[in-house]
Design a protein around this nucleic acid. Structure first.
Lengths: 198, 198, 198, 198
DNA sequence: TATGAATGAGATTTCATTCAT
DNA sequence: AATGAATGAAATCTCATTCAT
């Protein structure tokens, strides 16, 4: 009968988890922290999740969905200013997603959690996300550029720069980052902007 | 003060630490694990290091030195096949260093260690390593490319691709990775190879 | 006060309790288990029973009644084949009762429940059940056989053999068990069968 | 180097375990209780045993050895006063063993512990202990008495009477118990004492 | 009469660190 | 210089019981 109450509590725990993971990382996070932020009790936590890992998995699944959607929304890559502008929009969406869920994404790709099951899921997500990019890159890349590795390189830049920016490990200003990412990608694929008119 | 026996034990602990950190990450590593791999005892561990963090710091310092050296060894970037070949050599040296010490590098850049003192050191190393690249990129980059962010993007690619390769999170073959990294960088800075002769 | 719906729910909880206690023992049983088997909720459980112990007590009381009845139904013990046949019938009734309620009987005699109040009830039931046997044995036993201990020995055999049979801890076939129990008892009291005709 | 200190601590934990299990039963026993009796710390407990079950297993193994020895020490059963006297001596040894380790024996045969592994061990012990008795009974029992069931009946009496005596669930005086057990067994196998001279 | 949700006291377990030899 | 043993604070997890609807 109190279905909605339960759903609400579960949601609160998930949100609290996301928040705490973002601040303290997976290993640094105590169930106690999550429970405090969610304003509930230990007992309640274990009513909804068997343990910390399971809550993390639930979060990860949510993020995985968003990642998949985003990767599929990438249209064909095109040369020229228009193509670059389109790419920049897509990269901005990635930045938004990362701002929200970066902690989960990072933790997930740090294989060192549950050892097995967990790392596998992270790898899967990475593979899946990359594969959509591979397709787009393969469509336009010069023959001597390995599309898989190029796609991974793009993912690497996307992920890390957003990470540096978010954690302020390096002075990365958002707009400049978006400019650079789209420009650099575009250049690597189609050559520098002026080259087109030459 | 340390005789050769002591130096040897200390070294064994450091190597064991490096090995275990690589597999389990900083937080996932137990002093017990290190001690077992080093084939010694808890008591002995605390004879040489005040705590787990200090052992990690010792390792990190070693790596930081190598990183600094490597970053300083990067010569001016030059267009053309010759420039690309030189760059490739340098990237290969990074790959070698990463194969050996990647775990430490990664762990170090995981901001979530110790909260303060620790993350600061990681950030410092990142900054220092990047700054050498910034100089080289600034020398040749087109005016509308932010050299700092471009350098960070390069570091991101270097670090992550090597990481994916090493942990086999993605199918990255070493030679292909080196080719791609040097080619992509070169293209982003100087345009695609054929453009030069056009 | 309880309408038929209430009576039904209460009954379902009792039956569920009996089933789960039989499988997991008193301490191993969780209110959650009972509630699941009874297909109802925690809240409802505490509507009918103040706590786990009270549900057990209710079950125990039911069994105690049946035990008392059974013990009182034992007629005088008599030598010879007829006497043995009569005894066998009675033992069979015990076996039937045990098949149904053995779990409760056993659990009850596990002294370690609740510490006080509880163990006392179990002891009482044992005493009461035995005392009827003591009377019958005292009527016929040789002077040098302590009737109380002999009665307890009989109870021991009855209870344990049925237990071994039920839990399949030992390969005890029902008919053979009934034969053996009646024969052995008869022999201990009146000597082996052929001795009578000698 | 401090090997003997460790052995001593482990022994203290085992003894404490035996004592507490005897009083509170398996489920009623808290690691905390054991640790207090052993006069050591929680941490130390888990240094020697992975959990409560493992400590219990260790105890059980010890008891199983003693049980095996005892069962093997039973000589051929013989009619007459001499035979009965010999049997009585053996039964007394069982009583001694039970006084010391009854709690373990009982708990062990209560299948409801670890569910699987555990009950299996208990069953095994029961089987093994009984099988030695089966041999002795088969040597002398009348043809129409199933030796396996008769042996189990004997075990039942032995175990339960000692249990009643120890827990004072019934007023069983030790000497009377020993008399009754040997007499009843002897009678069941060879007929009442006077029958021999008839 | 019924129930889903919540609770918190208490039990178990882990592990960095200290100690005695 | 080395080590086996011990510790205890802190974390995880369980479950009988109560509560709000």
């Amino acid at each position: 009968m109190l279905r909605s109450r339960g759903r609400n509590t579960r949601r609160r725990l998930l949100d609290a988890g996301a928040a705490v993971f973002a601040t303290k990382g997976y290993h640094g996070t105590r169930v106690d922290d999550i429970v405090k932020v969610a304003n509930t009790s230990h007992g309640t936590f274990y009513l909804y999740f068997a343990n910390k890992e399971e809550l993390f998995s639930a979060l990860a699944e949510e993020v995985a969905g968003a990642m998949q959607e985003l990767s599929e929304s990438l249209g064909p890559l095109r040369p020229g200013a228009d193509g670059e502008a389109e790419l920049r929009v897509w990269i901005e969406q990635f930045a938004d997603l990362y701002a929200e869920s970066g902690a989960i994404i990072r933790t997930w790709t740090e294989a060192e959690i549950g050892g097995s099951e967990f790392g596998r899921l992270g790898t899967e997500m990475l593979t899946q996300f990359t594969s959509a990019l591979v397709v787009r890159i393969a469509e336009v890349a010069p023959a001597d550029l390995d599309p898989t590795i190029a796609a991974l390189a793009l993912v690497a830049m996307l992920e890390r720069l957003n990470y540096y920016a978010l954690t302020q490990q390096a002075p990365v200003e958002r707009e400049a980052m978006l400019d650079t990412l789209s420009r650099v990608t575009q250049s690597a694929l189609f050559g520098p902007p002026n080259a087109e008119h030459a």
